[in-house]
Simulated assay, not measured.
Amino acid sequence: MELTRRDALAVLVAAGAGSLAGCAAPRASDGDAGTGDAGDAGPVPVGDSEMETLVAVAEVVYPSAVDGVPKFVRTYTGGRVDADDAYARGVAAAVGSLDEYAEEFHGDRYAALSESTRREALDYMSVDVVDPVPDGTAAQRVRHYVVNELLYAFYTSPTGAGLAGLENPPGHPGGTESYREGPGR
């Protein structure tokens, strides 16, 4: 299944993520967090390095049957960070913590590790068992700002919901066709 920019935009609209103007064009391509183009109103907390790490995490936590992960993550995250500066700072800090953890235990940034080592790093960091807390420990922040946010975007998107069999979740009528078809269609 192919994730598209349209999927990411659908999630942003459903989540009410502020203005979608930031989704129409890529964010400043600066390579480093905290720098932006001279014409920017301020620093860009989520730059190319952070986006690369977010894509690397998504490649680990998303089902292997999904294609188009980089453009989906970049579009969704770009829209989210454009809509909320506090969220953008939280994402940047959580990604920084994940990269520090990877460098300490594996000798390189998270995105530079092999897929199996990335999966292992998330397991050893225990992001699958900690509570997601925005101002908690490093693992809790990674769970809140990175893993949970990426999974929310995936399963809220039309493609992700379809892959999980959630095109018409309970409580959503889905039109007259859903009443005519049984659950095992």
Score class of each variant (00 low, 15 high):
Asp40Trp: 00
Thr176Leu: 14
Phe154Lys: 09
Ala10Gln: 08
Val91Trp: 09
Arg5Phe: 00
Tyr87Thr: 14
Ala111Met: 12
Val130Thr: 07
Asp40His: 03
Leu150Met: 15
Gly47Ile: 12
Ala15Met: 04
Gly16Leu: 02
Ala10Arg: 05
Ala86Val: 14
Pro170Gly: 09
Pro183Tyr: 08
His144Lys: 02
Pro173Asn: 14
Ala10His: 08
Tyr101Gly: 01
Leu166Thr: 07
Pro43His: 07
Ala111Thr: 12
Ala121Met: 05
Ser64Val: 15
Ala139Lys: 07
Leu151Ile: 11
Ala86Leu: 12
Thr159Asp: 03
Val146Trp: 01
Ala33Asp: 15
Glu50Cys: 12
Phe105Asn: 04
Leu98Phe: 02
Asp85Val: 10
Asp123Asn: 01
His144Ala: 10
Arg118Gln: 14
Thr117Phe: 01
Ser97His: 08
Ala139His: 11
Val147Gln: 12
Gly47Arg: 12
Ala41Gly: 14
Val127Ile: 12
Val133Ile: 13
Gln140Val: 10
Gly165Asn: 07
Pro183Lys: 05
Asp30Gln: 12
Ala121Trp: 00
Glu50Ile: 06
Val95Arg: 07
Arg141His: 04
Ala94Asp: 04
Pro70Cys: 13
Val46Gln: 02
Ser97Tyr: 04
Glu120Met: 11
Pro173Cys: 12
Ala121Gly: 03
Ala21Pro: 00
Leu151Val: 12
Ala138Lys: 02
Ala92Trp: 06
Pro43Tyr: 05
Met1Gly: 05
Pro70Gln: 13
Ser19Ile: 07
Gly174Ala: 06
His172Gln: 10
Pro70Thr: 13
Leu163His: 13
Leu54Ala: 09
Leu122Val: 11
Glu104His: 05
Leu151Ser: 09
Ala41His: 06
Thr53Trp: 01
Arg180Gly: 13
Arg5Asp: 02
Cys23Ile: 10
Gly171Ser: 15
Ala102Phe: 05
Gly136Pro: 04
Ala86Tyr: 07
Gly36Cys: 14
Thr137Asn: 01
Gly34Pro: 06
Val146Pro: 03
Val73Gln: 09
Gly160Val: 08
Ala139Ser: 14
Arg119Trp: 05
Leu163Glu: 13
Asp123Val: 08
Ser114Thr: 15
Leu20Gly: 14
Arg185Ser: 13
Gly107Ser: 08
Arg143Lys: 15
Ala102Asp: 06
Glu181Trp: 01
Thr53Ile: 07
Tyr110Phe: 14
Gly34Met: 11
Ala92Gly: 03
Ala94Gly: 04
Ser116Cys: 02
Val57Ser: 12
Ser97Leu: 06
Gly160Asn: 07
Gly90Asp: 01
Tyr76Met: 15
Asn148Arg: 02
Ala121Arg: 01
Asp40Tyr: 00
Gly160Ala: 10
Ala139Pro: 11
Ala14Arg: 11
Tyr145Lys: 03
Glu177Leu: 15
Val55Lys: 06
Asp30Trp: 02
Leu20Trp: 04
Glu115Pro: 08
Asp85Arg: 12
Ser49Asp: 15
Val133Ala: 03
Gly96Ala: 09
